[in-house]
Design a protein around this nucleic acid. Structure first.
Lengths: 152, 152
DNA sequence: AGTGAAATTCCTCACGA
DNA sequence: TCGTGAGGAATTTCACT
């Protein structure tokens, strides 16, 4: 992966709608080699897929909650079960196993507090948890799907 | 926005590469009205843009850190200055103003610990902060840009 | 709002440098 | 590995239902 490939990735992760010819022009190439590079990057799995990003506010999904969880048990079986359980909710938009005091961090998107309560009950009902604490986002200051390619 | 529009959004946020004719077929329409609906959804800003998602692992961006920050002051001027300061880093991929003990939550993506340290120094140097704590993600169990449209 | 066809643009694959 | 050109497929527009 050279500098040209990195430029292609940088442009595509900002705007995947750009036509091959425009993309080619931006990086100082013609359409065909540019297209071939993009194909390679896709086949190599560097580009996983292209998606449309939606406006959460306009959709009425105004509530973002970060839920921190402490595991009830620390054996592999429990971990695996919890991973599958929490992943299955489509309100859970991101989900990490963490170092530190809490074992898991979930980013949850819902319409309102009632929906969050409903989600919360379903989350804790399915499985044994030790400690669950929710922090509410008041304001989204930045959200980007673009990775910092500058620093590679 | 009716059920057909919602179905278009649901499909496009999973895969923006789908052709208009395939999309139209999926929702039981022909290409033109489907295309017109998509245009409307884009003009209305419900679809903000289309982007390529990259594989962080394969790029070598294997480190995700959640940084929690307490404000030094709580006047609007400081808040605005901090929002601009932290947003300016492209390592900061998400950034929220929070309720609860900590005022801000930042999701940071970097290559390794050295890069994180470099970022951290630049973050705290630019501005006066009261308390900064970093939690490291050991494993990404789920990451999705798709909003839960089911629950609207 | 939906259909079908026409025009235009873009993607894709030859081949040559 | 890049560029040119041609064929074919897709998008986009338009007139009509």
């Amino acid at each position: 992966m050279d500098a040209v490939d990195r430029k292609i990735l940088a442009l595509l992760q900002q705007n995947a709608d750009i036509s091959i010819s425009d993309l080619a022009e931006e990086i100082g190439l013609t359409a065909t080699p540019c297209w071939r590079r993009m194909q390679r990057l896709q086949q190599a799995g560097l580009i996983t897929r292209k998606v449309a990003l939606l406006d959460a506010q306009k959709l009425g999904l105004s509530m973002t909650v970060f839920v921190q969880v402490k595991a009830a048990q620390h054996d592999g079986k429990w971990l695996d079960r919890f991973a599958r359980h929490a992943s299955s909710f489509d309100e859970v938009v991101e989900f990490y196993r963490m170092s530190g005091e809490y074992d898991y961090l979930l980013k949850v998107m819902v319409k309102d507090m009632q929906c969050f309560d409903h989600f919360y009950k379903r989350l804790v009902n399915g499985i044994d948890l030790n400690d669950v604490t929710s922090s509410f986002a008041m304001e989204q200051i930045k959200y980007s799907t673009a990775m910092p390619l500058q620093h590679l």
